[in-house]
């Protein structure tokens, strides 16, 4: 018998369920204990870079909007720096948290993030990644949170060189990761959990 590896196992995931909002966005469901919902506001003062709005909806395999999802995003600031103690390359914009959380509209399911367009961030091998935003989707019926990425359709050159996008075998699925510009700094990013036009999800 060799020695035993004393590694622990990650705690198993379970669905967030239909009432995730009680714990994560209590004000949204009428419980005012904390004096505001975390992640609702990503800007705490004047921010650097281009301010943008991201709108979208999560759809199930029948094309029905999810009206009980919770969507979180995490991104770099306009200069490509993360507001995190793990960021060692410099100081991120102090007025930009980089993290947002939205329960979506209770009737339509549409989520909205008021944020900034992220700068480019290097891949582990040093190549630059195209500007992107990490999305994490949980909801009733989703047993483990789904990771995906938003890229910008108007960053065609950067997208064509992106280390992640270029390794995707099914290049015809890349448009599922591209946010569409609607003008005035607004982008639409719909997420399709299943079926035709299914969004690419990552095992990170």
């Amino acid at each position: 018998m060799p020695q035993v590896l004393h590694n622990l196992r990650e705690t198993p995931s379970q669905t967030a369920g239909p009432y995730v909002h009680i714990g994560c966005t209590p004000n949204f469901t009428g419980i005012d204990i904390y004096g505001g919902d975390l992640g609702k506001c990503m800007k705490t003062g004047p921010v650097k870079g281009q301010e943008i709005t991201i709108k979208g909806t999560v759809f199930d395999g029948t094309g029905t909007p999810l009206r009980d999802a919770m969507i979180e995003i995490w991104q770099a600031d306009a200069e490509g720096l993360f507001n995190s103690p793990e960021e060692t390359r410099g100081d991120a914009d102090p007025n930009f948290t980089g993290w947002g959380r939205s329960p979506g509209d209770m009737e339509t399911g549409e989520f909205i993030f008021e944020t900034v367009k992220p700068g480019a961030v290097p891949f582990p091998d040093g190549r630059l990644q195209a500007p992107h935003i990490t999305f994490w989707v949980v909801a009733r019926g989703i047993n483990i949170g789904l990771h995906t990425r938003l890229y910008f359709e108007d960053e065609a050159d950067a997208n064509a060189a992106d280390p992640i996008l270029t390794r995707i075998e099914h290049q015809n699925r890349i448009p599922t990761l591209l946010a569409k510009s609607e003008g005035s700094g607004t982008y639409r990013f719909d997420i399709h959990l299943q079926g035709a036009g299914e969004t690419i999800f990552f095992d990170i």
């Binding site: 669905t15 992640g39 199930d60 395999g61 029948t62 029905t64 999810l66 995490w74 991104q75 770099a76 993360f82 507001n83 995190s84 793990e86 960021e87 948290t97 980089g98 993290w99 961030v121 290097p122 891949f123 582990p124 990644q129 992107h132 990490t134 909801a139 009733r140 019926g141 989703i142 047993n143 789904l146 990771h147 992640i164 390794r167 995707i168 699925r173 959990l193 299943q194 079926g195 299914e198 969004t199 690419i200 999800f201 990552f202 095992d203 990170i204």
Partner: peptide, 23 residues
């Protein structure tokens, strides 16, 4: 879960700064 589960395989990728940092 039946209509809220992706059918395509997840795409594996190494973690990058965006996954190694967090709020």
């Amino acid at each position: 879960s039946v209509k809220r589960s992706p059918q395509a395989a997840l795409l594996s990728m190494p973690t990058t700064l965006g996954e190694e940092t967090g709020p």
